[in-house]
Design a protein around this nucleic acid. Structure first.
Lengths: 233, 233
DNA sequence: GACGTTGTGTTGTTCAACAACGCACCATCC
DNA sequence: GGATGGTGCGTTGTTGAACAACACAACGTC
């Protein structure tokens, strides 16, 4: 074998061994997003450190990572708490989604059919999950769809930002998931969005997405409001 | 005086004492953005801690904050370096700006004249700075203008994200600032954008902003490219 | 009931030490 | 000469303990 030159597809290779604190952050994050640590849960440093078997300083760094992603709320000398979104937060998050995804749809309107195939695969997965009645996988596919949409903007930074927004929204959804929703409706909605994009009807697609978000906003606001009342009492 | 009730405009009050690490992060950030710590500068923990007079752990937390904002780049056991943007980064940042500000202009089209007054004040400041020949203040006003624009989207999270993007762009600009630019042109450009918004010509305004960004992209890419060549050698 | 005090538990910060790692330097060997 | 492989040094990653600073609740006083 010859020497390794820059054409050997090793360009983008990045060996990033995760530091301990990052691994802890990942673990705690998934616990939060799975609802195993519901909003309002206090994250005390000493118990966490002991239960995982690492130092308190390392836990501190991990918690700070999550704080910067909005998943936990930090206040001086009071520690970290799994974020309990307010109604304001929900409005904020939906607005951010609206802005990003609307722009993304316009960008997707100029995409080639080949680039749109990514959406098709996700919709297929959504359909399969619906047939299986696997609500978790459906929600995952739902989010993948919108993430894929945003990726048409071609900015990794926007992608990352959108992911943090999605993570924050999951703070609400981990509770009220498998509620009274119709699986087939979810599939149809996304298929419609895909078709509108492929057909060049971007304005119509944006409007449709708007209704989709209006709906989500109503439900999430109810959840947040119930939390706030519960907290005021 | 009577007791303090919830009508006394103390609702939004938030006493946020900054932790030491946050203060350090702020200090280092301003040093970076002023160009006192040019891209590529290594941030070693021990010298930093000793020069400021605080512990190494506190410095670590501060540096991690900056890393998460993209101002410094962290790699395992290699420490932190003031980020040196690549051409890819520049393209990314401009795309993010384009997406956010385009959407913001559409949102601003529905704003009342009263809400648009904030833009006028910034333009006034821009004019004053131009008369004084104070380029730093002009750049500040320039950024304030675009930040105000994004704020029309009504999402604090988008505002914060936009601020980090601006901060990253300053990584380039701290070097090539007071170059060959015409102050009056900058003023006219922003006044034009304001007028187009106020006149309801959102599409025209977005197009104009696009040219503005195309221009910025060209110049920033040149800077980034020169750095990369310098680094490859 | 309003107000000050104390006590308890938590976080914020520091310090010292060691392990793990990157890197430049040098010796070695074809 | 150039590639290979060790060696030492400086830096970061992580730990553990200690103390200070603070929030909060419980108590006692007026």
């Amino acid at each position: 074998m010859g020497p390794v030159t820059s054409g050997d597809s090793l360009d983008g290779l990045e060996i990033r061994r995760a530091s301990t604190s990052d691994q802890v952050a990942d673990a705690v994050r998934t616990m939060i997003l799975r609802g195993q640590l519901p909003p309002g849960t206090q994250l005390r440093e000493v118990p966490l450190a002991e239960s995982i078997g690492i130092s308190r300083n390392t836990v501190r760094e991990a918690v700070r990572v999550l704080a910067r992603q909005g998943l936990v709320t930090h206040s001086m000398h009071r520690g970290a708490v799994v974020t309990r979104l307010t109604e304001h937060d929900v409005v904020d998050l939906i607005r951010a989604r609206r802005a990003l995804e609307s722009q993304a749809i316009e960008a997707a309107g100029a995409a080639t059919p080949d680039e749109l195939r990514g959406l098709d695969e996700i919709i297929l997965e959504l359909e399969r999950a619906a047939i299986d009645g696997d609500w978790d996988r459906m929600v995952d596919a739902d989010w993948s769809f919108h993430r894929r949409l945003v990726s048409f903007l071609g900015s990794p930074r926007l992608d990352r930002f959108f992911e943090t927004i999605q993570a924050e929204m999951r703070l609400c959804l981990s509770i009220l998931d498998r509620e009274d929703d119709d699986p087939d409706e979810l599939v149809d909605e996304h298929r419609e969005l895909r078709d509108l994009i492929a057909g060049g009807a971007t304005d119509r697609c944006i409007a449709r997405l708007g209704e989709h978000l209006d709906d989500a906003e109503i439900r999430l606001r109810l959840i947040a409001r119930s939390w706030e009342e519960q907290n005021t009492q």
